[in-house]
Write a protein that binds this DNA or RNA. Structure first.
Lengths: 148, 148
DNA sequence: CCACTCTTCTGGAATCAATCAAGTTTGCGC
DNA sequence: GCGCAAACTTGATTGATTCCAGAAGAGTGG
């Protein structure tokens, strides 16, 4: 598992770069986010416990919050769904969400930096980001309708 | 309060138009939504109980769901906040949300019909709506920072 | 290499929005 | 008015998330 080792030390560097201590739960969470682009909290807990059964759910919440505050991960929360996290940050991309199964896919932002849209009337708000959620039906749900 | 009576009968017409029974809780919820453009569930309960103290919270949730299913109100749920409802529907407008106090304001959509944006790569999804949330700081929080 | 300190993690309880279930009331067509 | 189905009341329950107190561990200086 030389590759895993190499990637783990990469995670370590990421953590040290933002002055966060390097702990097993944090490395495991980062690995889970690398392998699953749009992952919800519950799945993070399951994946982390596959390798480290003793990790508490509170640790996961703490880690995710710390990583979010440090800017290493982004939290997305489509209406009516539980929070999801993704490790792709910094390019201001958007998401397309399936109404029936909740699947999420990335959509590149043509502009690439925030805010990529300007409001017609901002009511005096200082807008720094425009978040776009495309709602629709994913290929699986559209064709087969078998997948739930 | 002749005006109130007139508006109440307007609500009554709205309900009948979508085959919903006219009940006091429903009229009270519609009145609350008319007076408060972006209202959360808890505030709806408080406002309705000001006039009808016996109305249960379950009734409010039922009414809001029925009105949403009927298309009379829209549910918006910015990440990290509780659900809010608005009675302005049908014009596909968007919202600007304050990061610090959660205030919401309407932003007109230049296109006016869904979907107003097209994804650069839709991953095979059939997109029917593009929801835009502008994140920023409202005038109160930007200047005084007193209103928190 | 060891001790110290502060951050992080563990385990458990609490909170809050929202939903579910059972029984009662009520709008509205007849 | 009658009766039925929709809607409401009461109360319990779920599920995601947060709070709290004490234990463990990471990083630092000796």
């Amino acid at each position: 598992m030389a590759i895993v080792g190499a990637v783990t030390s990469d995670f370590e560097a990421q953590l040290r770069a933002v002055s966060l201590r390097v702990t097993r739960p944090r490395l495991a969470v980062l690995a889970a986010l690398r392998d699953h682009p749009h992952i919800d909290t519950d799945t993070v807990i399951k994946l982390v416990r596959a390798d480290h059964p003793t990790v508490s759910h509170q640790a996961i919440y703490d880690v995710l919050r710390a990583l979010r505050d440090a800017g290493l991960v982004r939290r997305i929360q489509p209406a009516g769904a539980t929070a999801r996290y993704e490790s792709r940050v910094g390019d201001n991309h958007h998401h397309v969400v399936c109404r029936s199964c909740g699947a999420v896919a990335d959509v590149d932002c043509p502009v690439g930096h925030a805010p990529c849209l300007t409001a017609s009337d901002d009511h005096g708000f200082v807008v720094d980001e425009a978040e776009v959620v495309y709602w629709g039906t994913c290929p699986d749900c559209a064709t087969g309708r078998t997948t739930q």
